[in-house]
Design a protein around this nucleic acid. Structure first.
Length: 294
DNA sequence: CTCGATCCCTGGACGC
DNA sequence: TGCGTCCAGGGATCGA
C-alpha cells in the first residue's frame, strides 16, 4: 500500500523513465476515480512531462503548457494518488494490458504510461494555476522537510490521538498506517495518546524515528505487502523490516511481549503493550467500546 | 474540535 | 471446487 516511501520510489523511477517525454494521446477505462475525465482526455495530449515529484502520497507529474494553445495555454500537473492498489509505470505497447488498466498515456518514445488499479481507491486529476495551488495547500507538513519545532508544534496543539494526527494528511502529508505504527513503536508511544499530552521529549523522539524510518524505507524502495510495485515493476523490501505492522501475536523484538492489534482512529494499530504504555483511561474505554459493539 | 460510522472497491483468506 | 463472508485500507462525508 503506497505511502510516502513507496510514492517517493515511484516518483524517482518515473522521473528517470518518463521525464521529458511528450504525451501523444490518452485512453481511459473506468473513470469513477478521476476528478474530471474529459479534462484528462483533452488536456494531456500534446503536453510534455517536465518532472515527476512526490507530494505527500500524491505523484505530481508537472506538465508543460499544451502545444495546441501555447499562447494562452497554462502549465499544469497531473495528480495521481495510488490509493491502495494503484500502479503507474511505463510499458512497451507490445506488453499486454493487465486487468484493471484504467488510464493509458501514449508517449513519444513508443511506450505507454499505464495506470492499473483494481480497487480504484486512488484518484487522478489534471489541475493547473490557482486550482492546483489551492489543492496542494490543503495538505500539511512533509515529514522529511519539516523542522523539529514545526513538527512538534503541529502535534502538541491538537487534542486528537497521535495515530489520528499522523494519518491526517492535513497535519502531516504522506504517512499511512504502516509507517505510523512503525515510528510509534520505535519512539515507544502508544497510538492512543493525545497529541497535546505528549512530552516535548516524546515528540522529539517521534520526529526523529519517523524520519529515520521513512529514509530507510525509501532506500529499500518501500514496502510491498500485497501488490505494490514501483515504476520499474519491482517490489520493495522494507516489509522485511517491519517491527509491529502485521505482526499481531508475534514477540516484540525489543522485549518479547506479544504484539497486539487494536483499533485507533478507525484503523488497525499494531503495538507492543509493554514498550508502548497506554494512556490513562484508554484500556477501560476500549473495552467499553468493544462490549457495546457486541 | 474530535469522534465513530459508513461508503467506495476488489481480491485474498478462511470456513463449511 | 465452490460458494458465502469477512477484511484490508485512504479519504470523503455526515451526524453525534
Amino acid at each position: 500500500m503506497p505511502e510516502l516511501p513507496e510514492v517517493e520510489t515511484v516518483a524517482r523511477g518515473l522521473q528517470r523513465e518518463v521525464a521529458g517525454r511528450r504525451i501523444l494521446n490518452v485512453t481511459l477505462g473506468k473513470t469513477d476515480f478521476i476528478d474530471n475525465p474529459a479534462d484528462v482526455e483533452q488536456q494531456l495530449p500534446g503536453r510534455r512531462i517536465l518532472a515527476v515529484e512526490r507530494y505527500g502520497k500524491f505523484l505530481l507529474l508537472r506538465l508543460t503548457a499544451s502545444e495546441a494553445d501555447r499562447a494562452c495555454g497554462v502549465a499544469g500537473a497531473l495528480l495521481v494518488h495510488l490509493g491502495m492498489t494503484g500502479i503507474l509505470r511505463p510499458q512497451a505497447v507490445t506488453e499486454p494490458h493487465l486487468k484493471h488498466t484504467h488510464v493509458v498515456m501514449r508517449l513519444d518514445d513508443g511506450r505507454e504510461l499505464r495506470y492499473v488499479d483494481p480497487r480504484r481507491f486512488g484518484r487522478i486529476a489534471f489541475l493547473s494555476g490557482e486550482i492546483l495551488r489551492e489543492e496542494l495547500c490543503r495538505f500539511g507538513l512533509d515529514p522529511l522537510e519539516a523542522g523539529r519545532e514545526e513538527f512538534a508544534g503541529k502535534i502538541r496543539e491538537r487534542r486528537a490521538r497521535i495515530k489520528a494526527l499522523l494519518l491526517d494528511q492535513s497535519v502531516i502529508r504522506g504517512v499511512g498506517n504502516i509507517y505510523a505504527d512503525e515510528s510509534l513503536w520505535k519512539a515507544k508511544i502508544h497510538p492512543a495518546h493525545l497529541g497535546m499530552k505528549l512530552s516535548v521529549e516524546q515528540v522529539k523522539r517521534l520526529y526523529r524515528e519517523l524520519q529515520k524510518i521513512l529514509r530507510r524505507a525509501i532506500e529499500l524502495r518501500g514496502s510491498s505487502i500485497s501488490d505494490f510495485l514501483d515504476a520499474e515493476g519491482e517490489p520493495g523490501e522494507y516489509q522485511q523490516h517491519h517491527r509491529v505492522y502485521g505482526r499481531e501475536g508475534e514477540p516484540c523484538v525489543r522485549c518479547k511481549t506479544d504484539i497486539r492489534r487494536v483499533i485507533v482512529a478507525g484503523r488497525s494499530s499494531y503495538f507492543c503493550p509493554r514498550c508502548q504504555k497506554a494512556p490513562r483511561g484508554w484500556k477501560r474505554s476500549a473495552r467499553a467500546r468493544t462490549a457495546k459493539k457486541k
